[in-house]
Structures are given as C-alpha cells and as structure tokens.
Write a protein that binds this DNA or RNA. Sequence first.
DNA 1: TATCAAAAGTGTATTTTTAACACCTATATT
DNA 2: AATATAGGTGTTAAAAATACACTTTTGATA
Lengths: 229, 229
Amino acid sequence: MLNTYSTEDKVLLAVDCIIFGFDKEELKILLIKRDFEPEKGKWSLMGGFLKQNENLDQAADRILSTLTGINNVYMEQLHSYSKVDRDPAERTISVAYYALINIEDHNAELIEKYSAKWFSIKKAPDLIFDHNIMVKHAISRLRYKTSKEPLGFELLPPKFTMRQLQKLYEAILNQKLDKRNFINKINSLDILIKLDEKDMNSSRKGSFLYMFDEEKYKRKKAEGFSFKV
Amino acid sequence: MLNTYSTEDKVLLAVDCIIFGFDKEELKILLIKRDFEPEKGKWSLMGGFLKQNENLDQAADRILSTLTGINNVYMEQLHSYSKVDRDPAERTISVAYYALINIEDHNAELIEKYSAKWFSIKKAPDLIFDHNIMVKHAISRLRYKTSKEPLGFELLPPKFTMRQLQKLYEAILNQKLDKRNFINKINSLDILIKLDEKDMNSSRKGSFLYMFDEEKYKRKKAEGFSFKV
DNA sequence: TATCAAAAGTGTATTTTTAACACCTATATT
DNA sequence: AATATAGGTGTTAAAAATACACTTTTGATA
C-alpha cells in the first residue's frame, strides 16, 4: 500500500454510545461505571476504540455487543467530539453513536456483569469528559428523528398500546400530548395493525395492542408518504 | 501525560469541506483539482488532516483558510466517513464539514492559484473517494438547516432583493416557490429591514434591497420565536 | 415622445392542518 | 350491586398553507 500521508499526525478514535431505552414512563440511558483510569469509578457512556480493520458503524456495534450483549439494534452516528484535552490521558477524538433498544429485551445479567445501569434522562448522574453534552445532543437528535421517521417503535416491544406509544412520545418530546389528538394523528398515518389482543396489565378494561406495520410503511414511503408526528 | 490507551490503533483523521456558494441562480460548490497521489488530477473537496494541537472545527477553518484564503464563514460539522478502504493510500477517517460563503466575497485570484473552481451542484463532476456522498449529505443537511434557521443569508450579500432570496431557497430546496406566498411568509417572520435603496441591475423598475436584522432575530428567538421557511 | 417589454409588487379565497375540548365504556375489586 | 380506574371516541374553531392574476414602473426603442 502507498503511504503518501506519512508525515501527518495520527490520533486515537474512540466510539461512545448513547443507548436509549423506554421503561413505561421514562426515557432512559444505559450507563457504565468506568473500570479503568482516568476517571475510574465515574459513570460514563459505553465506549471503545476504532480498530484498523473496521468502520465506525462496525466499531459501534462491536462495542455495544461486547459491553452489553446487545445486537441488531437501531444505531446511528451522532457527531464527533474533538476538544484537544477532552480526555486527560491522551489525545482522543470521539465519534458518538446513539442506539434505540427495547428495554425488555436486554439481558439483565449481562448488563449487571459490567456494572451497567439504566438512568432516567432526567435523573442521570454527571458523566465523564464531554459525555454530558453528547447525551444532550443525542436527545435533541432523537427528538428530530422520531418526529420524521417511525423510529419510536424501536424503543417499544413489538406489541404495544396506544397509551404506551403516546407516553413514549411524551417522554421524547418532554411534553404532554392530547390523548384524542394523538390517537387521531397516529391513526391517520395508517401504519399500525390493531390486534384483537388486549393488554390487561394497565387497566380493568384492558387496552388494545398494536403493531407497527413495517411493510406497509415502506410501501407508503416509496409512494411519497412521509411520517410526521 | 498518562498513556493508558497505548495498545489501541491510531488513525489518520482527515477533514473535508463542502463549500457552498450561491450565484444569482444556482447553488454551487467549490472544488479543487487534487495535486497529489492518489487520484492526482481528479476533482475533490478541499481537505487536509487534523493536527495534534487543534480540534476539528479549528482544522476545518485552517484548511479552508489555507486553500482559499476564506475566513470567518459559517461552518458546521456534517458527518464522519470511515469505510476501511475509502482512501486507497492509507486508512483514513474523514470528518466532513460544510461552509456557507457569499460567493462575491471570495478572492478569485487566490482560488485560481489553487485550481479551485465553482460548480453548480447539478453539474458537478464526479469526485474522488466518497466525496460524492458527502456532497449529497451536505445538501440534505443544508436543506434542513436553512428551513429551521436563518442561515441562507450567509450565502447572500448583506443587501439582497426578495427575488434573490426566493431564488436562493428555490435552489436549495430544488423547487419553484410561489412569489406572493414566499414574500408573505418572509414578511410575516419580520426579521428583515427594508432599505430605501433599490437594486437596478435586474429590471427597469428596480427592486428594493433588504438586510437581515440579526439583532431583531436574536431578540425574537430569545422570546421563543422560531424561524421556519 | 409614445409604445413596448420585462421584472416588481401586491391581496384574497380555499383548503388543509392543528388544537381545544368532555363524556361514555368496560371490567376487576370491594 | 356499587365503585373506581383507565380506555375509548368526534366535533368545532383557529391557524397555516396554498392557489391564483392583475397593475406598476421605467429604460429601451421605434
């Protein structure tokens, strides 16, 4: 291989993951207690370093998988953070990713093993380095993305109630929504399948379960339809 | 300094800039003829490498300044590109930035010196590596950003006509807009200053010049107003 | 100096979207 | 049998977006 750029500086490239989950009422992020210096013992995002033979998306997948056992979830690059002294140990540039997972799916044991813990985004502890600002940006991106694309479903179990969906959007947008207007809007999008099944946990009456109809959404999208909440 | 991460791989971090300009009718990007291998002689974005002692924003500024003499323009990080073999010479991750400049301000001489050239985004040549996709993403980001924030003015001279502004938005959005509706909407935002001066170049009648009232915009924004075109 | 050509400038009516709002239903629990 | 609790449902008003055509100005030209 040619090596035309040999005089240029090389740097460490970290990948940090903001992992979002939704737990009935609250939007949460998964944090880990850092077990190495610097800042050992402080709460941190899941992170690792890019390797020579992988791209950033792959590194993010690998890091998530290694630290939590979680695979095949929605993940998207957020932004790169490059303040010269952001990591006191060594010059490191960090590329942040955010992931959306169905909180019920995660293997609690694996997460325990690594001292990972879910925190409400409203009550999360102070994080190392520039991780606080990464989380802030991730929430803002999540807000934008979930209002333009049907990504919210990634945070819910496959079968969910209208109320759960509404609470999810309320948590993401950090505002109360009108029940009737919300349901009317979702129904007008016509991308859910209403099941005959009811969820009996939340009330005596029970509430109908729905599923996201991904195929229908794709078809409609191809025809120019655009999701908007 | 500690060096806790010494076993990790280091990589070259490139910064590539998509420089947007607007020339009466068309949205343009500034390209450069690459004068070193690999891909010498092909058209490329302006690029360079991150140095140890600067952050990415600073690197982007430095690169733009070095290659064009352009300083103090709106610039924003876009995305990082990391395909393993994206640069055949060596493993390189590129962080793309986009800049908005008033095309009249650029020093034509300096640009000539570096074989840089403006191309309409509709007629731009094929670019090296993954630069085509970067441009595509940048246009998409520009569309989003200029519809939510008053960034379009960065691409115009300080004094501009309504028609120029409309043509700018038409070029960015790649669609015709209705003259009356456009003016009504812009006027309703109430962030322009109408001057007594007319621009006599475009018609016999002449058309009034306007300026963006940045102070007023900031005041309104602080009060909860949000720009939306 | 009258006419023409070319872009500037201007307002209303219709449609669509968003927002506000309250009562009945079903059923497990007592 | 009564009650408590969350589920479910439609209409009206307000706001925003869209569609649409004629008059004005003035330099150039006949």
